[in-house]
């Protein structure tokens, strides 16, 4: 039997227009706060969600406000799973993510920017594109654990607090 309150889902639908990523970012932060994430992890989450939604708006939705970007936040006792879905009318997702060479950018050898996906990878525990054959759009999934390294066995004994093992707070 599945214990009660093991996961909760928040779903947002925002216009594909830059600026609305802020709504998703703050919603994700609110969810993480209720889960007992540390302030540092919440800041990392905010950066990851903001960048993922900005990418979905600019590339997947071509900044067309008639299109929608959907953000699904699924929380359980240890982690937050974030799925960002875009209409897929723009560019295809990149096949690889390279670390930015700021020296090359400053010296004009590389174009400026292109930091978003790389930054996301530094902020969360898992991040990858998911094929969405049903809708034809793009999906980007991120997982961030409440405690750094919680998803790996080597660090699984890192102390946890605030949220009792196995359940979410009652007010959730």
């Amino acid at each position: 039997m599945i214990p009660p309150h093991t996961s909760r889902v928040v779903e947002l639908k925002i216009p594909s227009e830059l600026g609305y990523e802020r709504v998703a970012r703050e919603a994700a932060a609110t969810v993480a706060r209720r889960l007992g994430f540390s302030p540092e992890r919440i800041e990392e989450l905010k950066t990851a969600v903001d960048e993922a939604c900005s990418n979905a708006i600019r590339h997947g939705g071509k900044s067309d406000a008639r299109m929608k970007v959907i953000v699904v936040l699924t929380a359980d006792e240890t982690k937050l799973d974030i799925l960002v879905k875009d209409p897929g009318i723009g560019d295809s997702p990149p096949s690889e993510v390279v670390a930015p060479d700021i020296q090359a950018q400053v010296e004009g050898r590389d174009p400026k920017g292109g930091l978003g996906l790389w930054l996301i990878r530094q902020m969360v525990d898992e991040a990858y594109f998911v094929e969405d054959e049903e809708s034809g759009g793009s999906q980007f999934r991120m997982i961030i654990y409440r405690v750094t390294g919680e998803g790996t066995s080597a660090l699984s004994d890192v102390s946890q607090s605030v949220v009792d093992e196995g359940t979410l707070p009652d007010e959730w």
Binding site: E51, I102, G113
Partner: peptide, 19 residues
Amino acid sequence: DYINSAGIAILIGIVTEAR
């Protein structure tokens, strides 16, 4: 206040000019 990757790109442009 919040800074995203587009903001960082703006600052990279500034350091390029300043250099």
